[in-house]
Design a protein around this nucleic acid. Structure first.
Length: 450
RNA sequence: GGUUCCUUAGCCAAGUUGGUAAGGCAACUGACUGCAACUCAGUCACCAUCGGUUCGAAUCCGGUAGGAACCUCCA
């Protein structure tokens, strides 16, 4: 299958670039997943929705997509919490992984190929760190292993940070053992009560920045993948550090394209646990529905911040309602008139729609085309001369667009009883028996037929 | 202190390489209707501000005001 051209903003080169895959027709993607020590908030889900949209768009453009995301199940926060709750780290992380997966379902996220967990990659991580040490980019200090930032001339290229500025302006805690305050831990030895691993690097745990590189290399079996991303804040230090390790390990960049997704603010303020202004994803999905949250996320360009306010949610709600109503009215029409489904879409319109999405996920413009289809569809529905084939073409086009955006509407079921009421309603109107028709109309509105 | 970003109608939000502003919501007007709802059509922007470059700038450059992020765990 021929692939359609896609343009993506690449943080590394700081510009929109034509997407060129490593392997023709295929794309490998990894985005950083949650640290599973608690329920995730809505901000955590924006990158997930964004990458899910990217996957759908790339598939529609003819790509074979291989996308994975990790679960960080080894982390100080998990250990602390597990000790508090007198559970094992595994019990705790398993619980929150399950909770997280409910959110994936709620937001209609396509199943990923894999969700690697750090705890399953300890031997690979140890080998990886050893190789970096052999290559001269990491050193042991007080039992821990640190990455030597000053030995990497490319450090700071991704996040556009200058190492000297970072060091001089650093509020980083000074650690006597470290060569430079910017150096970060690859392996930390410990004798605390938390989970630890007995390895040739000592009894301890890996640093956070190593896991993703190792899992990318191990899973995709190559040093460089097509796209790597996550939230905006991951750019520095997390992704910068990952890429530094990749260079130290293989002499190659970890990814050809780096994508970073903007934040979600709550009433114009950053969500933070200390301020206590967190909206949990599960609560938002339960309260407003997955479609509304998803629509809210994708309707703003993914690199811009979103302000999560009651007005914003309401706007998204009304939009989704409109889409749902459109979908319903087609199904009602088909059912009431006993129309036989037919295939085919309006490919020019879908092409235009996809073209916008393929332009760095310009959902706003794509929705413009969707709205055009809805207007035409509504006109076609009212026009008694529209053929059933044309109606289905419009409906199919609409559905394909909705599916590409990752929205999902249940099928409207029109019962025999509904049909009967509808026929009676028409008859009463014809007889100008408005008392009766008004009552039937009430019923039909209740049943969402009108 | 260092680095970076943002400011488009009541609200949300587009706007490749500069050529006098997409779309949606809300509002208003009209059509349709027995009345209404739905739907359709139409109306609604001096692009934060000041100055510069230019035949021409929301788009480029500079100043000002306001807002935000990163530099530390963070989606």
């Amino acid at each position: 299958m021929k692939t359609r051209s896609i343009r993506l903003y690449d943080t590394y080169q700081a510009k929109v670039r034509e997407f060129v895959p490593i392997e023709e027709g295929k794309v490998s993607i990894y985005y950083c997943g949650p640290t599973v020590y608690n329920y995730v908030h809505i901000g955590n889900m924006r990158p997930v929705v964004t990458f899910d949209l990217l996957e759908r768009v790339m598939k529609a453009c003819g790509y074979e997509v291989h996308m994975i995301s990790n679960y960080t199940d080894i982390d100080d926060k998990i250990i602390k919490r597990a000790l508090e709750e007198k559970k094992s780290e595994k019990e705790l992380s398993d619980y929150y992984i399950k909770a997280y997966e409910e959110n994936l379902k709620g937001l209609n996220i396509l199943p990923l190929e894999n969700h690697p967990r750090v705890s399953n990659y300890i031997p690979e991580i140890v080998d990886f760190i050893s190789k970096i040490m052999d290559n001269g980019y990491a050193y042991k200090a007080g039992g821990d292993v640190y990455f030597s930032v000053t030995d990497d001339p490319g450090y700071g290229k991704l996040s556009k940070m200058n190492v000297d500025d970072l060091i001089s302006g650093s509020r980083v805690e000074t650690n006597e053992a470290k060569k430079s305050p910017m150096d970060f831990a690859l392996w930390k030895v410990t004798d605390d009560k938390g989970i630890k691993f007995d390895t040739k690097l000592g009894s301890g745990r890996p640093g956070w920045h190593t896991e993703c590189v190792v899992m990318i290399n191990s899973y995709f079996k190559k040093p460089t993948i097509d796209i790597h991303g996550g939230g905006f804040d991951l750019k520095f230090p997390h992704h910068e550090n990952e890429n530094a390790q990749s260079w130290a390990y293989s002499g190659k960049n970890l990814a050809n394209y780096w994508m970073h997704v903007g934040f979600i603010n709550l009433n114009n303020a950053k969500m933070s646990k200390s301020l206590g202004n967190i909206v949990l994803a599960k609560d938002a999905i339960e309260k407003y529905g997955g479609n509304v949250i998803r629509y809210l996320f994708i309707s703003t360009y993914y690199r811009s911040p979103i302000n999560f306010s009651s007005e914003a949610v309401e706007t998204a709600r009304v939009e989704v309602e409109k889409l749902k109503k459109f979908s319903d009215s087609f199904q009602v029409k088909f059912a009431l008139n006993g129309l036989e489904p037919s295939d085919g879409i309006n490919s020019e319109e879908f092409d235009e729609f996809l073209g916008y999405l393929a332009d760095d996920l310009n959902v706003a413009n794509a929705i413009t085309v969707l709205d055009k289809v809805i207007k035409e569809g509504n006109k076609a529905l009212r026009n008694s001369r529209t053929s059933s084939e044309e109606l289905f073409k419009c409906y199919n086009t609409f559905n394909k667009m909705i599916d590409t955006l990752g929205l999902k509407f249940e099928r409207k079921v029109v019962s025999e009883e509904d049909k009967k009421i509808y026929d009676d309603y028409l008859a009463a109107k014809k007889e100008r028996n408005f008392d009766k028709s008004d009552k039937l109309r009430e019923k039909l509105i209740e049943r969402k037929i009108l």
